[in-house]
Design a protein around this nucleic acid. Structure first.
Length: 770
DNA sequence: TGGCAAATACTG
DNA sequence: CAGTAT
DNA sequence: GCCA
């Protein structure tokens, strides 16, 4: 995104270190501290972008997904349908995908005689007459043993080493006694297969006919239209619980039967519901709504969204199911919808490294949450334009906080604590503030050097921040999630001595300072910086004179100070206005949205992310000619001062085009009330986004990082995939392992729709500071 | 001991 | 392809 | 760095 998070510090740092790198070490350090302190308040949750090796991670993910999808369930060595055959062929070749699949379905890939002879609920009377002959014996066996096989097709197959269903511990079998019918009702799709397995592990029975079912689980993305025909075939369907696939997932996550009537589970699945089809001819209204500022060209298309938030009632009426009565079926308590509604928050906590189980004095916790609540309100006050759902949601949160989930105690009090990238402080009054600060310094030091270590420190900081008492001993510290031996010792040291020797030592070392200096040059990463340090270069001047630099690095050094300075909000706007004006002369129908921290409401940004889009575009390429013209023009104007990364027709296959460079605000655009004009080079990214991907891109380029990771994680937990192009229903790799679909696009153009499909409530951009 | 988010794009 | 960036 |  942007977030040259060290920016503030850098501002100080650079001035000193550039000139007096080695002497005055102490002073420099003090400055640094001061700056850091500043920054701490500003962004107390720095986002770090770690450039680690991507391939390993990627492959893991890939295999996991593939695994989930393809093989866990049907694993017959038998030979019924061609479908099975295909699947089987792949499986043995790909051990990693086995693991992955198991990992998703459950962490313990336990096979073989693992059958738990569960004795659960009512026996579904299989309607044998409806079944394919092959299935019958199977069904019979299943019903008697109550351990259903996952796949009809495996029925007659005598598997030698078949991954059998392993039921979870009883207390997790929230679906016990329930009978699920899926639409579509097969496990051909790996994601669904995994979902089915999961549901079964939690006690559900997968039934073949609608008739037997207590619950109808509809694939994400399907609407009432799609399922209508299935439903009318069974007269009793009106009494069944009809929910989308998010429902069992959420129940699983929370280990409790949730209210199935929540809007997010039934959206578009009821007769009255009209599937929200984002009008292809207009940009999503949500985009407009959230970018009120950039409307240079009138609001050409204003489509009042009626469907973007559920009517207030649906959120709170969990007491009175409209459709039928789940409670009677459910052996488990139904809990208030509100308590789990902010599911995304939980994922954020997760990604931040906080466990969902948090030990903490209860009374104080309330204070805490009340406090953060207040913060949130403040923010919402100023920054939000949507009114009613906003406030109703907040109310819900309030009540939600008190509710205890089974054994899980949700802790989202901190989720909004770190708003506004500029001003508010969240750490000041914290008893562990001092500790946090020193640890934060450690983070700063390791940044770019050891991303994982950084992450650990950050996680520790988050944990500390949530405490209401000062942690003084290692023993105490160790109890916190994410704090191990080493960190605990450091925490104790800080508490006892008020300082951290290791930190001071490291900070004193000139190589470190130099390294960190070099790392702040655009285009320089850890690798290059290390080389230079070991080659004996000590200052930026050294580099300029002696080192061999890439073009970008040269720019990075020449404009070191400018590029490391933060951009005040007004200037971001002014810069964007310049571009808009130029663009208006080229193609007036192109639209611009400023993303990044700006969109989240920050007072200042590290760079400018300008999303460029236009109605009717289906690929970034559609915008390329425009961008070329625009760039040429702006370059001639002297507005764009450097190109750091542009596009080259050839390299650029497939999607996504962007342009990275620098710009300066022309004096003519400089507001007089801002003092004296001084041209400062700014980093700017121009991002081409077709209308069809606009919503996904908006999410991606709005961030912040943690938020993005959380929401993507959430997506993947639901068997979906979210990236900058859209939300996809995951599909696995096909036969040869090579052919793999990337999944069906569920939604790409409408930001809010993506939230909906994910089953999480909408968050305004300014609520995405995590 | 390996893993920790992930996907893309550009440079050299 | 490695490195860097977003 | 932590954790499984």
């Amino acid at each position: 995104m942007e977030e040259r998070e060290l920016a503030d510090k850098i501002a100080y740092f650079k001035r000193l270190s550039t000139i007096q790198a080695e002497e005055n070490g102490d002073d420099a350090y003090d400055e640094e501290e001061k700056a850091h302190r500043e920054r701490c308040k500003t962004f107390h949750n720095a986002t770090s972008t770690s450039n680690r090796a991507k391939s390993p991670a990627r492959s893991v993910t890939g295999s996991q997904k593939a695994g989930t999808a393809s093989q866990p369930l049907p694993h017959p060595d038998g030979s019924q349908s061609s479908d099975d055959l295909e699947i089987i062929k792949v499986t043995p070749l790909n051990p990693s995908s086995r693991l992955g699949a198991a990992g998703i379905a459950d962490k313990t890939p336990n096979f073989d005689e693992e059958i738990v002879p569960e004795s659960a609920g009512p026996d579904p009377k299989p309607a044998h007459s409806f079944l394919h002959p092959l299935l019958r014996p199977r069904m019979t066996r299943q019903t008697s043993s109550l351990t259903l096989d996952n796949s009809p097709s495996t029925s007659t197959a005598k598997r030698k080493k078949q991954a059998r269903l392993k039921l979870l511990p009883e207390n997790q079998q929230v679906f016990r006694g329930l009978r699920f019918y899926y639409i579509p009702n097969d496990d051909a799709n790996g994601v669904r297969a995994a979902q089915i397995t999961k549901a079964r592990e939690r006690g559900a029975t997968w039934v073949r006919t609608l008739k037997e079912a207590t619950h109808v689980i509809v694939d994400i993305g399907l609407t009432y239209q799609d399922i209508k025909s299935d439903l009318i075939s069974d007269s009793s369907s009106a009494e069944k619980v009809i929910v989308n696939a998010n429902y069992p997932i959420d129940c699983g996550i929370h280990r409790v039967i949730l209210d199935p009537n929540q809007e997010k589970y039934v959206r578009n699945l009821r007769v009255a519901d009209t599937p929200p089809v984002p009008s292809p001819s207009s940009l999503p209204a949500s985009a407009q709504a959230s970018n009120n500022l950039l409307e240079i060209k009138g609001k050409q298309h204003k489509r009042p969204r009626k469907d973007q938030e559920s009517p207030p009632r649906t959120q709170s009426d969990y007491g009175e199911p409209l459709q039928n009565n789940t409670q009677s079926l459910a052996p488990v308590t139904t809990i208030a919808a509100a308590s789990v509604d902010d599911e995304l928050s939980q994922y954020i906590s997760l990604v931040q490294g906080n466990s969902l189980y948090l030990e903490m004095p209860l009374g104080e916790e309330e204070e805490d949450s009340a406090h953060s609540e207040a913060t949130q309100d403040d923010e919402a006050e100023t920054g939000s334009e949507s009114s009613e759902d906003e406030s109703s949601r907040k109310k819900k949160r309030k009540t939600g906080d008190k509710i205890q989930l089974g054994q899980e105690d949700t802790t989202w009090q901190d989720n909004f604590a770190c708003m506004k990238g500029g001003t508010r402080e969240g750490t000041v009054d914290n008893p562990n503030a001092a500790t946090i600060e020193l640890l934060q310094s450690m983070v700063d030091m390791y940044e770019h050097q050891d991303a994982w270590r950084c992450k650990s420190y950050r996680r520790a900081i988050t944990a500390l921040r949530q405490q209401t008492r000062k942690i003084t001993t290692a023993k105490e510290a160790m109890k916190l999630p994410g704090i191990g031996k080493s960190l605990a010792a450091k925490i104790e040291e800080i508490a006892a001595e008020g300082r951290l020797r290791k930190l001071e030592h490291a900070q004193q070392r000139p190589e470190n300072k130099i390294l960190n200096l070099f790392l702040k040059v655009y285009g320089v990463g850890i690798s290059q910086a290390n080389k230079w340090v070991s080659q004996g270069y000590r200052t930026l001047e050294d580099l300029q004179e002696k080192a061999k630099l890439s073009t970008n690095q040269r720019i990075g050094i020449e404009h070191f100070e400018d590029l490391n300075e933060r951009i005040p909000r007004w200037e971001v706007e002014a810069l964007a206005a310049v571009i808009r004006e130029a663009a208006g002369c080229i193609d007036a129908s192109v639209e611009f949205i400023i993303g990044g921290s700006y969109r989240r409401g920050s007072d200042s940004s590290g760079d400018i992310d300008l999303i460029i889009t236009k109605k009717g575009t289906r690929s970034p390429q559609d915008l390329l000619p425009f961008l070329e013209k625009l760039i040429k023009r702006l370059t001639n104007d002297g507005f764009l001062t450097a190109a750091l990364a542009s596009f080259s027709e050839n390299t650029n296959k497939g999607h996504g085009s962007k342009w990275h460079g620098c710009c300066v605000l022309p004096e003519t655009a400089f507001p007089k009330d801002k003092g004296k004009y001084r041209p400062i080079w700014r980093r700017i990214d121009l991002l081409l986004v077709p209308e069809t991907e606009f919503g996904a891109a908006l999410i991606y380029f709005t961030g912040n990082d943690i938020f993005n990771r959380s929401i993507r994680l959430l997506a993947s937990k639901k068997g979906l995939r979210l990236n900058q192009r859209g939300l996809f229903k995951d599909v696995l790799r096909g036969k040869k392992g090579v052919t793999y679909t990337e999944g069906d696009l569920l939604e790409g153009r409408d930001e809010k729709r993506i939230f909906e499909l994910l089953g999480v409530k909408w968050r305004e951009p300014h609520e995405r500071w995590c």
